[in-house]
Design a binder for these strands. Structure first.
Lengths: 108, 108
DNA sequence: CCCACTACTCCGCATTGCGTGGTAGTGTGC
DNA sequence: GCACACTACCACGCAATGCGGAGTAGTGGG
């Protein structure tokens, strides 16, 4: 099954949600997302999303050298990011409500 | 709020769901979708989706002349369409589950 | 005759996730 | 010391798909 298109517009929200649990860097974020059920997210998609969100002013960013590999770019939510997450949650909720109503409304 | 991207990959399912309530034509489908909560679906998107689904062999199609305007192209689900709807429902359900878990999991 | 409403179609654009491949840094095994 | 693996990030081009705008028709009203 191809849930690729479902991710569109939702990956942002998912990334924000993971970041609301605490700052992390891209590579780890990918792992967390995959562990959460988004089994097949491409890493490039996540990095792209992070760059877009950061560019939009929703994230803080800090490069931290690591002793077990290349430097990590830690991202965190700022006020705008938290607000965006709240709004996205609401949008998602409404949208999901419409969908489930449509999908199950005619069967009971 | 821009739920445009959320629609991606879901409009197919929504169209199939509406069609499972009975055959209709594009123009009416747009009205039903808008009434269901997809307030701002573009008509071109719906027509495009119908063409894609029909091209994929999921729909039946029949042109019926109308006395109050141009001819209507009625679409209905065939076996493949019903199957696709079932699968799409499942995919959506799983996906929605992952999302709600992610969005609300850290708060309780 | 112009306009409004119904009904469908085509074209080009924007967004965004993905695949591929590339650059680095560290550590392991031979 | 070289190949390889793992971590970590990025760039490029592609594909899917929703949208806006414009176009074609048919019917009927002022």
């Amino acid at each position: 099954m191809d849930s690729t298109q479902l991710l569109k517009g939702v990956l942002d929200t998912a990334v924000l949600a993971v970041l609301s649990r605490g700052r992390t860097y891209g590579y780890d974020l990918v792992r967390q997302l995959r562990a959460s059920g988004f089994d097949e997210v491409g890493d490039a998609s996540v990095y792209g999303t992070l760059r877009r969100l950061f560019g939009g002013g929703y994230l803080t960013s800090e490069v931290v050298p690591s002793e077990e590999g290349p430097a990590r770019k830690y991202y965190g939510l700022n006020r705008a990011g938290t607000d965006l997450l709240d709004r996205s949650k609401k949008t998602w909720h409404d949208f999901a409500g419409v969908m489930s109503h449509l999908l199950e409304g005619e069967e009971e």
